[in-house]
Design a protein around this nucleic acid. Structure first.
Length: 260
DNA sequence: CCAGACGTTGTT
DNA sequence: GTCTGG
DNA sequence: CCAGACGTTGTT
DNA sequence: GTCTGG
């Protein structure tokens, strides 16, 4: 869950709201999908300040041979995030906030499946609990693995190089920073349409979540709870246009309708 | 997450 | 890198 | 010990 | 069914 969302808010406004330095400007977008380079807030440990930058959506662990794994690491389950090999290091050391102003969810118990748009009642941007990792392109190692596979008569996994990820080419030795959104069980509002929801972090807990020195799993896990449903709203996308009526939302809805 | 492709040969 | 399965 | 996976969602 | 691209 949480595989599509919007960032309608301008980058400068987001930087101000989350008290972060804008490292890289970006355009707002109404239908963000995995593999996009999405805005995240994290701590720059050298300068000891929050930065707003863009990471590839789909976490590629630092040990990965092939970034393909990213297709299945757009989300991380809150209940197992501290144990899974793909996430445990990031959970301990490199947490981030993934910024959005609403997300889509498809109710599948009806035909055709019904898309909903979920946001805060005050329509303000909010932050989901995220993890990030840095991965380095190691084509030379891959080549050795392919040779090995050929010798043992197995089908080698073809790796294209340079690798294009999130609209950028990555060559040997280049680094990719990627991220994942943590999910949890739904609150009463979300439970009507789906059995998972993204973890939304309360602003008063941003500091703790982002602190690289915070290693207390117990404390961190208490933050991974379903967000207060009374602060949220959930509308079928066909009704969001009528309700909000602004151009941005309308564009967003059109795009979703075309694609669903 | 969803939408859309998914294949080869030879000829233009 | 680290864990699981054999 | 080595080899192979390492993930989530939803759907069957 | 399963993978890729967005």
């Amino acid at each position: 869950m949480c595989g599509r969302y919007t960032v309608k808010t301008k980058d400068k406004k987001l930087a101000a709201q989350f008290q972060a330095s804008l490292l890289e400007s970006f355009d707002n977008h109404f239908n963000i999908a995995p593999t996009f380079r999405v805005p995240v807030v994290l701590m720059d440990t050298e300068k000891n300040e929050r930065v707003l930058k863009r990471d590839y959506w789909g976490l590629v662990p630092y040990w990965a041979k092939n970034p393909k794994i990213a297709y299945q690491t757009t989300n991380a389950r809150a209940d197992t995030v501290s144990e899974k090999p793909s996430f445990k290091r990031a959970f301990k050391k490199t947490r981030c906030l993934i910024i959005m102003d609403g997300f889509f969810e498809w109710e599948r118990s009806v035909t055709p499946k019904q898309p909903y748009y979920i946001s805060m009642k005050d329509e303000q941007p909010f932050a989901c609990a995220g993890l990030y990792e840095t991965w380095k392109v190691r084509w030379e190692e891959d080549k050795r693995d392919i040779e090995k596979a050929e010798k043992t008569g197995k089908k080698p996994k073809a790796v294209k190089w340079p690798i294009n990820l999130g609209g950028k080419n990555y060559n040997e030795g280049e680094e990719l920073e990627s991220c994942s959104i943590i999910t949890t069980e739904p609150n009463p509002l979300m439970a009507k349409i789906h059995d998972r929801m993204p973890v939304i972090i309360d602003p008063k807990n941003y500091e703790v979540w982002l602190d690289p020195k915070m290693h207390d799993e117990g404390v961190l896990k208490t933050l991974l709870k379903p967000y207060t449903d009374t602060k949220m709203q959930c509308w079928p996308v066909s009704q969001v246009v009528n309700k909000v009526g602004d151009d941005d939302t309308e564009n967003c809805i059109k795009e979703v309708k075309v694609q669903s």
